[in-house]
Every structure is written in structure tokens, then in C-alpha cells.
Design a protein around this nucleic acid. Structure first.
Lengths: 332, 332
DNA sequence: CTGTTAGCGCCTTCAC
DNA sequence: GTGAAGGCGCTAACAG
């Protein structure tokens, strides 16, 4: 293993000088020495030992990202955006997948703290259980006390900078668009009650309907994934339009309806939420609420990295946009 | 920032003892001291400084994963499998996304080397350009010389342990299955010529047709992504069955056909390759060749971590399985 | 079983 | 502009 010292010796300069030219210091080094060092480094095949650098500097150049499930295109898109932004700052991204277990979210923050990552990004819905939320907060606070930066994508419940999608408003807007098409009887595939994102979308939708004087939607709970949508839609009764609180569930719903010979949108309309890229080519194409996922990931990086140590955490609202597509049709 | 020394002092023991109880050492420590240390650590909120640990141990506990594009479900699934396996070993995963630029693959290996990661996983198709391949090899060799482990998912061209999907055979098998259904005139959406995965699948398909005495397929090159499939399929002329060398391209092809009012499978059959999970609910459901993506990711981790320093690199073949679904229909 | 003591590789003030 | 030297937090011999 080639060390800085090897390079310095080979170049006939001091360790300090070698350090200054090889690892971005603000100090100036003379042309001659600089070139000698660079050449020696190249010849010997020197690679900075980031661990040593991190130890000496007290700050690393990696960003930790905690997601629920990388296979879910929602998080893949978020991660992609975060990685692009991180790279622009010269950082790498370390990913932790909780597979939807909130306890592992806490464990990851601890692990990332141990890694002394530059920043931690928490993404995905918060849960209603105040106990896990507060334990996560404790862990995050501990991390921040030692200089760590944190940002969250989702609900502003952690006392940290947050990229906050307008789930409630987006769902409400969707409800109004759907109602404008003549629908009055709705069903909501609402996901699990303990997931706040799901609950917000469901509530926003219902509130908008109430605001229009329409009857309450039929609310069906279930898992937040494809199979959850598949199962939940079986219980729909009497609705002309189904709102799945995320696109992945909507896909499951479409599959279930198709398998039962129910035509979408002829027999029933379906809408989702998120506007997942890889799902754009579904047939029928899915009416949904678009969230700029990649951007949100990038924003989270910027938010975490920006600002001073003691700043009040900022909350950055993210607007959604209703996208009407084939899976919904106007009611005669 | 609480250090091991703080904990040791607080517990009234030596640094060594504290280290032994807190950071998995094989050495034994007496009940009393052990408990005192654990309590102090908890009270003070101690978190191991992994950078210091890595420096002292000369080995980190993170695994580097290089992918082409995380948003591509192929890589998301691979990454998921790798992360699960890594976690079983107590490792975390750092992801680098090349966005399909081979140069960045090389750069990432260098960066991951600097991080002194425990292992590097290279995934995604190799390219035909011998220059970039050899430069990547040089970088990998440098890393391995300093004790790094490497595994590759794809073609065995890097001189490292490799998880090698049977692209050629899988495509050949698919060709035979399709031919058995009565198809004789095929088109292949072949992706870019420089991507070996694409080339292998295309070649395997053509060879199998030749072996059956069938005419050569129409081969259409283009990008390896959704839009590539969309564009390429427009040039298809006279085929009754189209083979897109990956599922994502097949989705693009389906979209293009639909937009032109061409019905699948009634007017033309379409097949893909990979069996991407989130695409299973497409209509019509996609005939494809299944690859156990998550498993492959996990296998890559095991392969990289296993074996002795100087072992001959192993090549682990991965079999594919043809999955016939609705997008293909027997020819009258 | 427990403590002492060198480093691990690099950064960074402080002199020159 | 350049060099010398202490220290970042932890581990792993080596003694006791």
C-alpha cells in the first residue's frame, strides 16, 4: 500500500508538502515541487487513504441515505437524484435499506453516525407511533450534536430540515379533478393506517370530497405495496373511481381488476400517486399525482449540506401536479 | 464527540479493555468490567468512530457497488440483493452510478479504493472497447494488490470472480421456444453494438434461429433503454415476433406499437429479457427470460468476500429460464 | 483477564 | 513556500 509518506520520500519533499498538493489544501505549493509530487504519486499509484483523512479531518465525504426499499421505484428515483447531487459535492452515497422496518431506520442512523458520514438523509413515510419517532429523533440529535447534518424527505416530524411533499394537497387536488369529471362515488386504497404519507393522502382526498359535498369514500386499508393494492381493490363496492395512495398499489389494483375482467377505465376509473417513471407505459396509462422524485433527492442533499450548524431547520414544501391519463374517464 | 477513551475513563478501565468489550474482539473480558464499560458507553452515548477503526484495522466494513443506473429496475434488484447479503456480513454498501459512462466506472473503482472498501462489485455489461476494459483492469488490479476483493456481475473479462448470466444460452432458448410456437420471421431490438450483454443476447438468439434453419432475424441497433426500444421497433419490417434484448426496451417497444395501433400479441409478438419485477403487471404480460437478479447481487457479495487472497478467480454461471406470457402468441 | 504502548495514514498549526 | 511534529480515535501486540 502506497502512502503519502512514500510519495513524499520519492519526490524528495516533506510529508506536509505532499499532502498539500495531493489532497486539496488551500495552501500554495511551488510549481516545481507540485509537479514532482504529482509525478511521484502517479508513478507509485498512490491512492488517498480516506479513512485516515476522515480521522484527521474529523469529517468524511460520504453521505448516508436511508430508504425503505430500493426496489420500489419511488426510492430508486430519490436515490438517483441524491447521488447526482452528492457527486456534485464530491461525496459518495452509502445506502441503508430498512425494508420497511422503522427499527432498522434507527439502527442505520446509529451506524451512519459511527461512519461519521457528512450527512444523513432519511426518506420515506414517518409512522404514527410516537415512540419510534422519538427514539429516531434521539438518535438523530445525538448525531447532530457531533456535527452531523440531517435532512428528511417526508413529514416534518424529526426536527430536521425537511423536503415536504404536499401529499394532502396533492390528493385533494386529485379528488377535485376526478369530481370535475363527474365521479361521485369513490374508493380509497388507503395503505396502512400507521404510515403518515398514506394517511395524509387518504385524508386529503376525503377532505376535498367533503368540501365538494360529495359522499365519503369507501376506505380500504392494506399494505403500501403492489400486493396491497391487488388485495384491497377486491373489496371495492359501488365506486366508479378508485384512488390508490401510491402508484405501485395502483398497479396491483389494475392487475386485480384485469384478472377479474373488469375494464379500466370503462367499468371503473383508477388513479395513483407519485408518477413513477418506469410505470409510465402501463396500459391504460395511469392517472396520478406527480412528485419530482429525483429533484427531491437532490434537494435533500443540498438542504442537509447547506446552512449553519445551529440554524433553525428549514422545511421545503414540494408541490405536486395532477396528471390525468387514460385510467380515468369522465362519467357519462 | 465521545471517544473510547472517554468511555474507558468513565468506567475506570483501560482503553484496551473498553475496546475489547465495545468492538467485537475475540478476547474475553470479565463480567464486572464488561458491564461497567457497556453501561458507561450507553450513558455517554458512545459511537464507534469507524474511520479510526478502519485505519487501525486496515480494513473497512463497507462494500462498494458500481451500477450503470439505479433507476433501471435491473440494477435496483441487483443492489437490493447485494445489500441484503452485505448486511448479513455486517457490511454497508456504498453505491456508485456511472449513468452508463465506462470512464466513470474506472473512476469509481479508484474512489472506492481510496475508501479502502472491503470489496468492490462491478455490475452491468462490459463494453467491447478493449482500451477501457484494460484500464479498468489496471485499476482493479491495483486495488486487489492492496488486499481488496472484487467480484463482477456480467462478462468474465476482468480477471476477477464473476457471476456470469447465460445471456447467449438464454436468448437461444427463447428463440427456440418462440420458433416452437410457429414464428419464423423475427426482428431483434439489439441495443448498442458495443455492449457485450446486448451483443451476446442478440447473437445467441440469431444462432439458435440459424440452428433451426430459420432465416436471419432483422437486427436493429439502438440505445439499451426504454426509448431505445421505442425507436427501434419502428423499423421492424415483416417480422411476426420481436425480441428486445432487455425488458425495459421491450416496454418501450410495446408503447410504440400501441401508439401506432398495432396490437400485441394479435398483430405481432414481443419478448424481452431479465424478467424485471415491477414490470410483471404490464398488459399484455411480457414473455421474457428470467434472471434471478437479487440472488445474483447476493452471490456477488459472497463471491467477493469468499476465497483466499491468491485464489484463481471463480466464474459462477447463472442459468436463465424462459417465461412465456401473453405478449407472445402461437402463429396460426 | 487487564493494562501499556506503539503505530495506522493523514492533516494542520507552528516555525523557518 | 516548505518542513517538523503533534494528534485524530482505535487496535493489536506485548507485558504483567
Amino acid at each position: 500500500m502506497v502512502t503519502l509518506e512514500d510519495v513524499a520520500r520519492h519526490a524528495g519533499v516533506s510529508l506536509a508538502t505532499a499532502s498539500r498538493v495531493l489532497n486539496g489544501s488551500s495552501r500554495n505549493v511551488g510549481r516545481t515541487m507540485r509537479e514532482r509530487v504529482e509525478k511521484s504519486a502517479a508513478v507509485l499509484g498512490y491512492r488517498t487513504n480516506v479513512a485516515a483523512q476522515t480521522l484527521a479531518r474529523g469529517a468524511s465525504n460520504v453521505i448516508g441515505l436511508v430508504v425503505h426499499d430500493l426496489v420500489d421505484p419511488y426510492f430508486a428515483a430519490l436515490a438517483d437524484g441524491a447521488m447526482r447531487a452528492a457527486e456534485a459535492h464530491g461525496h459518495m452515497v452509502m445506502v441503508g435499506t430498512t425494508h420497511r422496518d422503522p427499527e432498522r431506520e434507527i439502527a442505520y442512523v446509529s451506524t451512519l453516525n459511527a461512519q461519521r458520514v457528512r450527512a444523513v438523509l432519511i426518506s420515506g413515510s414517518r409512522v404514527t407511533d410516537p415512540d419510534v419517532t422519538s427514539r429516531l429523533r434521539v438518535e438523530l440529535d445525538r448525531y447532530r450534536e457531533s456535527g452531523g447534518r440531517v435532512a428528511c424527505v417526508g413529514q416534518d416530524l424529526l426536527g430536521v430540515g425537511t423536503i415536504a411533499p404536499a401529499n394532502r394537497e396533492g390528493a385533494a387536488e386529485l379528488a377535485r379533478s376526478l369530481a370535475a369529471l363527474g365521479h361521485t362515488r369513490f374508493a380509497v386504497l388507503a395503505g396502512p393506517p400507521h404510515l403518515i404519507t398514506a394517511a395524509d393522502r387518504s385524508a386529503g382526498f376525503a377532505e376535498a370530497l367533503a368540501g365538494l359535498g360529495l359522499p365519503e369514500p369507501q376506505v380500504i386499508h392494506g399494505p403500501f405495496d403492489r400486493d396491497g393494492g391487488y388485495e384491497a381493490v377486491q373489496e371495492v363496492a359501488g365506486a366508479t373511481c378508485v384512488f390508490a395512495v401510491n402508484d405501485v398499489m395502483a398497479v396491483g389494483a389494475l392487475a386485480a381488476l384485469r384478472s377479474r375482467g373488469v375494464r379500466v377505465p370503462d367499468d371503473i376509473s383508477v388513479a395513483g400517486f407519485d408518477d413513477i417513471g418506469p410505470l409510465r407505459d402501463l396500459t391504460p396509462s395511469l392517472t396520478t399525482v406527480r412528485l419530482p422524485l429525483a429533484e427531491m433527492g437532490a434537494q435533500a442533499v443540498e438542504l442537509a449540506l447547506s446552512g449553519e450548524e445551529g440554524d433553525e431547520p428549514r422545511v421545503v414544501p414540494v408541490e405536486c401536479e395532477v396528471v390525468l391519463r387514460e385510467s380515468v374517464r369522465p362519467l357519462a
